[in-house]
Design a protein around this nucleic acid. Structure first.
Length: 408
RNA sequence: GCCGGGUUGCCCGAGUGGCCAAAGGGAGCUGACUGUAAAUCAGCCGGCGAAGCCUACAGCGGUUCGAAUCCGUUACCCGGCACCA
């Protein structure tokens, strides 16, 4: 692959590279000297949270690896002491060394589905941050000014709003910047929200006489709602370890407006093809639903397999589009204890089998016409069923909750 | 330590004595519709075999015929001020 092709590949989906032309320069030098680039990614050890949004960055790293470069993951065990100031007032829980080590391991484990283990180095930043003496910290601090740090959006907002900013929080960017110095990073990858921290790395490297790293930013993927960023806490995410059917369903629920972004950032479908697909959908030549299904299949193929993708598609068609009962219906035991004189109240049954939160909820569902027994809609919330012909009966709530009853 | 503000249902958030199982929004559930588990519209959305009753507005105690609302107290959170100097 020549340089232009490499650049084209790498810049796909990127939200920006600082400085302009920096990537080309680094790549060029690397190919001339035969020395792989060190590409850094900092990770917060608090919560291994691998979803498609995070995967955007990881997949980009993988591309670097495939071009022969070295990825260095930095687990921020030390920076975790501070906590990224991006959040609000919530104090981060202190983690024990053990937890951090374990989280680190979990991370590496999950990450390896995307990254090439061979070309991935994992470091903990306590390794060097822990060795700094107070004097050295002071000396490093002298390399950054308060004005620079306060420039940061988060701080600006909090400062204006009169919210407290801990002195230690000002050290966060410094600490992260020092990571870049410690490993002599060529490139630091991160989401757009990491802009400040990553640029701080450049600054500090320059101050200390190193060649500054290139900041490589990826956009934050929007979540399933199509508006907010994808995150576990917002619950609008697709986990890379989600089972195929779940992935498929979740991806089908994204709004059309998010389609282009998802294709670009989460799949390997060539840009030309993506454009053609979207244009066809726009003009009504293709049903946009089918384009979205294609997206879902592409993603599932990456994290599972093409076969799993096809199966999930078929499952979705049958269960949701045609509203058929799934081939495998979960079974639930119903204890005869809840029966009276060999009869079972329908609401009790729905509740005890887990289809309703309680008899009140069940009653509502029935009144709203949401319950079916063996495919027949139930309309009477006072219905009594004979316990004897219950075994094997299929109960359904709405169009997608099925349970096969087992009397025990 | 002192002063002030706060703590409401899954989440956010209104409510300052009865009309409060508590506005509104979000999430969730059901139905209709459709190109989907999208969007839109409608209904539901503490518990109870449903009548009424019970449990709920941080905990406890009190005032009152009646308290999410008033008083006291405890805990926690957020500001500010002070002490250690």
């Amino acid at each position: 692959m020549n340089l232009d092709e490499q650049v084209a590949l790498l810049t796909r989906g990127s939200a920006g590279i600082t400085p302009q032309g920096g990537l080309e320069q680094k790549l060029k030098r690397s190919s001339e000297t035969g020395k792989p680039l060190k590409v850094k990614l900092g990770l917060d050890p608090t919560a291994p949270d691998i979803h498609l949004g995070f995967a955007v960055v990881l997949r980009k790293l993988r591309q670097f690896q495939d071009l022969g470069h070295q990825v260095i993951l930095i687990i921020g065990d030390y920076t975790a002491l501070i906590g990224d100031p991006s959040g609000r007032s919530a104090t981060r829980p202190m983690l024990t060394d053990e937890q951090i080590a374990q989280n680190g391991a979990t991370y590496v484990d999950q990450l390896s589905t995307i990254l090439d283990r061979e070309k991935t180095q994992v470091r903990f930043n306590g390794e060097w941050l822990g060795k700094l003496s107070f004097a050295e910290v002071v000396r490093l601090s002298a390399r950054m000014t308060v004005a620079q740090v306060l420039e940061r959006d988060d701080f600006q907002k909090r400062y204006r709003a009169g919210e407290p900013i801990g002195l230690h929080e000002l050290l966060y960017p410094l600490a992260q910047a020092y990571d870049s110095v410690a490993i002599e990073a060529d490139i630091e990858m991160g989401g757009q929200d990491q802009m400040f921290n990553i640029l701080a790395g450049r600054g500090l490297q320059k101050e200390l006489g190193q060649e500054p790293q290139v900041g490589f930013f990826m956009p934050l993927l929007v979540g399933l709602d199509g508006e907010k960023k994808m995150s576990k806490s917002l619950g609008n995410y697709v986990g890379v370890q989600d089972v195929p059917n779940e992935m498929f369903g979740k991806l089908m629920s994204i709004p059309d407006t998010a389609l282009a972004t998802y294709f670009e950032l989460t799949t390997d479908v060539p840009m030309d093809e993506i454009k053609a697909l979207l244009a066809a959908a726009e003009q009504g030549e293709v049903n946009p639903k089918d384009v979205k299904k294609r997206l879902a299949r592409e993603v599932i193929t990456i994290y599972h397999s093409a076969q799993a993708a096809a199966e999930a598609d078929a499952h979705f068609e049958s269960v949701y589009s045609r509203k058929e009962a799934p081939s495998e219906i979960p079974e639930a035991a119903f204890a005869a204890v809840d029966a009276k004189d060999g009869k079972v109240w329908i609401c009790k049954l729905l509740a005890s089998v887990g289809l309703s939160k309680g008899t009140g909820d069940a009653r509502r569902t029935v009144l709203q016409g949401g319950a079916k027994l063996n495919g027949e809609r139930i309309s009477d919330p006072n219905l009594e069923l004979a316990l004897t012909d219950l075994d094997g009966a299929v109960l359904q709530v709405g169009s997608r909750h099925f349970v096969r009853v087992r009397t025990t």
